[in-house]
């Protein structure tokens, strides 16, 4: 149980680091949204799962209820984050920002 928790914790922090790094490194809004919207979601999901495991380690009614609340946060993130990401990327397209493409290639949507 503990080992799973530490692995999830490490993975979550790794994903957060990767997402932040991508936020800085990538060339345009669209590809940065990949990082901000989803690597971060993955990171927060695994971190919250680690917290859930830590919480129900001492197993009784009060801890179980708090654990279920933590799962509620996780579930909300799971629903809300892609919706927010989609809203942002739709706004990008409607605002007329052209997506960055590699030199010498044109993509025609």
């Amino acid at each position: 149980m503990d080992i799973v928790m530490y692995v999830l914790l490490g993975l979550g922090l790794l994903f957060f680091t990767g997402g932040t790094l991508g936020l800085i490194r990538l060339p345009d809004v669209y590809s940065r949204l990949h990082m901000a919207g989803k690597i971060d979601t993955m990171g927060s999901i695994s971190l919250i799962a680690a917290l859930f495991l830590h919480e129900i380690e001492t197993f009784d009614m009060a801890h179980l209820l708090v654990g279920l609340k933590i799962l509620l946060v996780l579930f909300f993130q799971f629903l809300a984050s892609p919706t927010a990401c989609h809203a942002m990327v739709n706004a990008c397209l409607r605002a007329g920002l052209a997506p960055w493409v590699k030199d010498g290639q044109r993509s025609d949507p």
């Binding site: 629903l79 809300a80 919706t83 989609h86 809203a87 739709n90």
Partner: peptide
């Protein structure tokens, strides 16, 4: 109206 946003928000 964006379909995804509308459906998810009304669900939430």
């Amino acid at each position: 109206q964006d379909m995804v946003v509308e459906t998810m928000c009304l669900f939430m």
